[in-house]
Each structure stands twice: as structure tokens, then as C-alpha cells.
């Protein structure tokens, strides 16, 4: 296991350099730079723009800028955002809590719905229940998240049961601790539903097809032949094997935690990373974009690694020697 870990960790280094360089280069292919957006302000003279370019180091060639950035990163300094003039780490951290909380809530919600429903429809394959739920799930897959978000906001306004977006009430700071928790929870319900429902459909379909596939596998027939009860076959043999791809997906989910969902965040006014990064990309705030690309990359790679390790734990057919040879 030690050698496997070492090998995977070392492999991450060229991957990270490659991904960050490509992102860096892609952003410099766009004409203009962060300072260009100020050029149409009549109060800012071209000399001041030149000064700002020099101050941010934007007048340097691509390789120099990239190496400078990499040098900073190696020293655990992710640089200073051009738009906000504060450390990228602080900026991302200030938004990350909201994003992670929301992503976790929606992930738990979608898994909690999708897995049981997937099992039910697989067990009762081709029944009316299966058909109905499949239809709903296809509908869910095809409705875009931001549209659901609009509907949810309308519902909140019309019913008055839920806050109309946001992550806190304006008077959050004046509440007592328990009310603060309740306030956050209240604000979390609709967004988690909107983001979670989008995931339910595909997860449910995956669960269904997994079970259907495994139900006819030879080891299941063996289990039945041994005279095990149907529920034991189902939960002990079919279900455990059907969950394998979900372990991998949970690993990828780690990267999604910080990915954010810019459109839904905008509509529901959730102060998460998605919108921050979208604005950063559009305004060419390179340090901020690179900071998040780096974080996303690391989370994706680490998540992947954790998923592989978890797979060894749950699936007896997989061990570290087979993983290392892949």
C-alpha cells in the first residue's frame, strides 16, 4: 500500500503542473488582461493603466508569469487577487464554507433519495411504479437546474414558507447560536433540493441498472442455490456489489464540493464559489482563477485516490497490486 500511495502521489506532480499550465496559457490567449476592463473609465489615464499592469506583473511574457506563479505556489502562497487585492486563499475560504455546506447537503439529499428509489424500481422492474419513477427521473434530468431554482424562488415568494434565497438572514449576526443554526438550515432547504434533485435522476438510473446487471450474475445464482433467503441475497450480495461505482463517484464528488454551481447560485443568491470564479474568469483575475483551478485539481486527484482506497476496502476483487498496475 505504501508504494502504491507514493507512486500515485508522485504522479500527481506532473499532472498538476500540466493542468495549471494549460489553464494559465488558455487565460492568456484571451485578448486583453485584467486592467483592460478599466480602460473605458474616462477617469483612469493610460499611464495609470500601465502602472497597474506593471504592479500586477501583467506586462511580462507568459512563461515568466507562469513560473512566478508556480514559484509562489511552491512556497504555499497562492497570490493576491487582482480584483480584490487580498490573498486568494482568504477569498476562496470566505466563500468555501457556503459552497461545501450546500454541496454536502444536496449530495446527502440526492443519495438518500436516489439509492432507495433505485433499489425499489430495480426490484420491481417494468412495473407501473418503475415506469412512473423512470419518467419522473428523465424529466428531472432534462430540466435545467437554474430553471428549478426560479421555480423554487417563486414558490418561496408565493408560500412565504422559505426565505427567498440567500444563505443567511440580514440580521444573522444578532441571533443566538441555536437560531443561527436554524436560520442557516432554513436557507439551505430549497437550494439543496434544487441541486439535489438534479442529481437524483442520474444516480437512480445508475443504481437501477447496476442492480439489474448484478441480479443475473452467477454469484447471485449461487447464493440463491445455497438456499439463502431473497432479502439476504438482495442486501448481502446484490446491493454490496452494486454500490461499487458509487464509491468511485463519491471520490469525484469531493472535487464537486468546491466546484459550485454558478447559475443556481446566482438565481438563489447563494454566496458561493461558483459566482466568484465565474466573475474571476470573465474579468481575467488570473491569480484567483488559478488558485481555484489548483484547489479543484488537487481535490479531484485526492478524491480519486481515496475512492480507489475505499474500493479496495469494499470490493474483495480489487487490491492495491491490481490498482497499481492500471
Amino acid at each position: 500500500m505504501g508504494r502504491f500511495l507514493l507512486k500515485r502521489l508522485l504522479l500527481m506532480i506532473p499532472l498538476i503542473i500540466g493542468i495549471t499550465f494549460i489553464s494559465f496559457a488558455a487565460m492568456s490567449l484571451v485578448p486583453g488582461n485584467f486592467v483592460s476592463s478599466l480602460a473605458l473609465d474616462p477617469k483612469i489615464s493610460p499611464q495609470v493603466l500601465k502602472q497597474m499592469e506593471a504592479e500586477f506583473g501583467l506586462d511580462q511574457p507568459l512563461m515568466i508569469r507562469y513560473l512566478r506563479w508556480l514559484w509562489q505556489v511552491v512556497h504555499m502562497n497562492f497570490g493576491v487577487s487582482l480584483a480584490y487585492r487580498v490573498n486568494v486563499t482568504n477569498l476562496i475560504a470566505s466563500r468555501a464554507a457556503n459552497t461545501v455546506l450546500l454541496a454536502l447537503a444536496s449530495m446527502i439529499l440526492s443519495w438518500a433519495i436516489a439509492i432507495p428509489v433505485g433499489i425499489i424500481v430495480a426490484v420491481r422492474q417494468n412495473s407501473i411504479l418503475d415506469r412512473t419513477l423512470s419518467f419522473i427521473s428523465f424529466l428531472g434530468m432534462s430540466v435545467p437546474g437554474f430553471f428549478l431554482a426560479f421555480l423554487a424562488m417563486d414558490f418561496a415568494l408565493w408560500s412565504g414558507w422559505f426565505p427567498v434565497g440567500g444563505s443567511f438572514s440580514p440580521d444573522y449576526a444578532t441571533l443566538d447560536t441555536w437560531s443561527q443554526v436554524a436560520d442557516r438550515f432554513n436557507h439551505l432547504i430549497l437550494p439543496a433540493l434544487v441541486l439535489g434533485l438534479a442529481g437524483v435522476a442520474s444516480l437512480m438510473r445508475l443504481m437501477r441498472s447496476q442492480i439489474l446487471e448484478i441480479k443475473h450474475a452467477e454469484f447471485v445464482r449461487t447464493a440463491r442455490a445455497k438456499g439463502l433467503s431473497e432479502s439476504r441475497v438482495m442486501y448481502k450480495h446484490v446491493l454490496r456489489n452494486a454500490l461499487n461505482p458509487f464509491v468511485t463517484m463519491a471520490g469525484y464528488g469531493l472535487a464537486d464540493l468546491l466546484g459550485g454551481a454558478a447559475l443556481v447560485e446566482t438565481v438563489m443568491n447563494l454566496q458561493g464559489l461558483g459566482l466568484l470564479l465565474l466573475t474571476a474568469v470573465r474579468s481575467l483575475d488570473v491569480p484567483l482563477v488559478m488558485g481555484s483551478v489548483l484547489m479543484g485539481t488537487i481535490l479531484l486527484l485526492v478524491g480519486n485516490l481515496l475512492a480507489d482506497i475505499a474500493l479496495v476496502a469494499v470490493d474483495p476483487r480489487v487490491d492495491f497490486s491490481t490498482l497499481a498496475s492500471q
Binding site: I113, P116, V117, I120, F185
Partner: peptide, 28 residues
């Protein structure tokens, strides 16, 4: 069986949500 549990779970979550009242002074 599972279905009943899932439905109960969903109901409980909704009740929890609706019952989650924030105790605050009127923000006038």
C-alpha cells in the same frame, strides 16, 4: 418496507424543516 422507510424519512425531513423556526426579535 424500504419504501415506507424512505417516505417516513422524507416526511421527517420536511417536518424538521417546517418546524425550524428562527427565534429572533422583530426586525423593524
Amino acid at each position: 418496507m424500504i419504501r415506507i422507510r424512505a417516505v417516513l424519512f422524507a416526511l421527517a425531513a420536511l417536518l424538521l424543516a417546517a418546524g425550524c423556526r428562527v427565534n429572533r426579535p422583530p426586525n423593524d
